[in-house]
Nucleic acid binder design. Structure first.
Lengths: 215, 215
DNA sequence: GTATAATTGGGGGTTTTCCCCTATGGACTA
DNA sequence: TAGTCCATAGGGGAAAACCCCCAATTATAC
């Protein structure tokens, strides 16, 4: 019996996968998570064999979850699911320990095949994803590694602050929401201005949206 | 027996909905379409009671399909499904004859409720969508019901100021560039804040970019 | 195991934004 | 012709953002 945990913020999608898997006698869905933050606590209570993990999750994104999970619970096999065949997503989550990557437009048969393949300790990718990985490898050989990173890495906390800035909150409001001092938020703001090379809040918001830094 | 046609390009999602609906004795899924172009031909052969229609479809998008369908086959009730609670999507597809709009993060129970409600000839919206519609209505009443602008009209000068704000210029710099007084620019800023219903510069920039107000 | 980075926080100050008020001339329009 | 919007501009004040300085603790990476 393969124990599976599903993590996706789209309820209807989670219900859908569950309905598909329910008909399989050797698969047991032991739980659902609708955001990134609840996954680790769930696994601390009950360990699944496979985690079906959406790459774009609210709270804490799939890549971060995968990283943490791979360190703490390496026996849990992560099968990443995503709407997008995005090179950056694929590469990053695979680098963080995911055993497979399938797209949301793959069918029932392929989903079951992916689950069984991953359960046997092998890796599984959708056909389209395989192509993407190939392209990625070729590019990285051409320019010798990382081609992205136009921006210095933004930390977890900075990203939280940035999100609230974009949502029109003032520094004081952000401090209250995050239970930290006004001065700390000002620190993060100033790091963000410097890292993103912005002159003011307007620039912060523009650069964030134009480069989809919060997705 | 309610006959349903599902149209969504994400196979896994289609399978999911189908699995959910299969357990209902009064619902019969008569077909699946994975792109916009195949929907009308299908309906010409076999007419469903309800079309579960994804707003973002390859080939021909959901809004166009809905429009054509509403003209040719008004008896088919369209229940729009989308990943996004986007005001423009919601308003447009409802203006083109859709009977309901639900998000992909609504659960199994709500999906069934939506189907039964629409089948009775009533309309159904997710809670979040209702709020979006309300906002849209308020805006469209303000500017006399024009469908293009969900925001009050922004004047030529205001647009110039807005552009410079997004480009990270301060009020003083904008005044110098446009050869007008600081106070005048402040006037325009404050009109913009009020018209776009923003709290601060961050909101101004976010709303501008999200709604492509400068294109 | 030692750098490096992240997170936290404070003092003190300047600049910018935001808000209230008023006001005038011109252009469009009901 | 009166009413409304637009663009212009100012006084005065409160709030927010931005800029230096600094420093402690904790992660994380190499």
């Amino acid at each position: 019996m393969i124990k599976i945990l599903i993590a996706d913020d789209h309820t209807m999608f989670v219900d859908g996968i569950e309905s598909i898997l329910k008909t399989e006698s050797d698969i047991n869905v032991i739980g659902q998570c609708y955001d990134g933050l609840s996954i680790i606590p769930f696994i601390e209570k009950e360990t699944p064999d496979i985690l079906l993990l959406d790459v774009n999750l609210p709270g804490k994104n799939g890549i971060e979850v995968c990283k943490e999970l791979h360190a703490k619970y390496p026996m849990v096999k992560v099968l990443a699911i995503s709407m997008f065949n995005e090179e950056s997503y694929v590469t990053e989550i695979l680098n963080n320990g995911a055993k497979g990557y399938i797209l949301k437009n793959t069918g029932r048969e392929e989903l079951l095949l992916a689950i069984h393949t991953v359960q046997e300790g092998k890796t599984f990718f959708s056909k389209e994803v395989t192509n993407t990985i190939m392209k990625g490898l070729m590019n990285s050989r051409k320019n010798g590694g990382k081609k992205t990173a136009f921006f210095p890495k933004i930390s977890r906390r900075e990203k939280e602050v940035l999100k609230l800035i974009v949502e029109e909150h003032t520094t004081q409001e952000i401090a209250d929401k995050l239970f930290i001092s006004l001065k700390t938020v000002e620190s993060h703001r100033s790091s963000l201005l410097s890292k993103l090379n912005a002159r003011n809040t307007a620039g912060l918001v523009r650069i964030t949206l134009e480069n989809k830094l919060l997705d």
